[in-house]
Write a protein that binds this DNA or RNA. Structure first.
Length: 214
DNA sequence: CACATGATCGCCT
DNA sequence: GGCGATCATGTGG
């Protein structure tokens, strides 16, 4: 299916354990999930090997009431359909004629909310900016629209799992990036990032405004 | 680092 | 027909 991942993202699945998360994790409040996704790993198997990255930046999109969401006012088209699936589904869309963006769908089936994966860190060998930004993240992992609607909890070739040995990250919170058209919703504090990660995207100015907690 | 611009096409009105 | 949940590149401070 689709594109090949960057070889520098090759990982040893045994050292990470790849402990899967329960379905209930993905049916909770979307903003909480966006926060909790920081520090998790997204991994893909391709040609007999595993490739993965640690998520360091996300955004929550709150569905029908959120002018920045594709499902705003209940819009339901073939493209957006995966957002209406059960939590744990992947939603991928194509923007600006050249980039893909990957989202983890949240809440039970029928409620179209999701978390955009904005940035991740690769293993040591990977350059800092390789996965820094939603388009780059998809490009580096080889994620395209072919994956939209995929169940991340199916034990298949694309998975989300916990990092066994690492302490809880310090989380920064800001408004979302690139949604200036969304009226009041553009100011909502729904972007979450690892304050100690060098791979976070966006203007440094925004990231320095420490709204972090926990 | 900040800001501006062009590339490029699927999706919805 | 118009516009993006973006990025690379170029300019200037």
């Amino acid at each position: 299916m689709s594109d090949s991942p960057d070889p520098r993202l090759c990982i040893d699945p045994d050292s990470l354990g790849m402990r899967e998360l329960p379905r209930t994790f993905f049916r909770r409040a979307t903003a909480q999930i966006a926060r909790d996704l920081i520090g998790l790993w997204l991994a893909r198997s391709w040609d007999g090997r595993w490739y993965g990255a640690r998520i360091v930046e996300t955004e929550a999109y709150l569905g029908a009431t959120d002018a920045a969401a594709h499902s705003w006012r209940g819009r339901r088209t073939p493209r957006v359909e995966p957002m209406y699936q059960d939590g744990g589904t992947l939603y991928v869309f194509f923007v600006y004629g050249m980039h893909h963006c990957a989202n983890v769908v949240t809440r039970p089936a029928g409620i179209a909310e999701a978390c955009l994966l904005r940035a991740a860190e690769g293993p040591e060998a990977a350059p800092r900016r390789l996965l820094s930004g939603p388009g780059r993240l998809c490009s580096a992992l080889g994620i395209t629209r072919d994956w939209s609607g995929y169940d991340l909890l199916s034990g298949g070739d694309l998975r989300l799992f916990r990092d066994p040995g690492r302490r809880r990250p310090r989380i920064g919170v800001t408004k979302r990036i690139g949604v200036d058209y969304a009226g009041e919703a553009k100011e909502w504090p729904l972007r979450f990032f690892d304050m100690d990660s060098p791979a976070v995207s966006g203007p440094a100015r925004l990231n320095r405004r420490m709204t972090g907690d926990q």
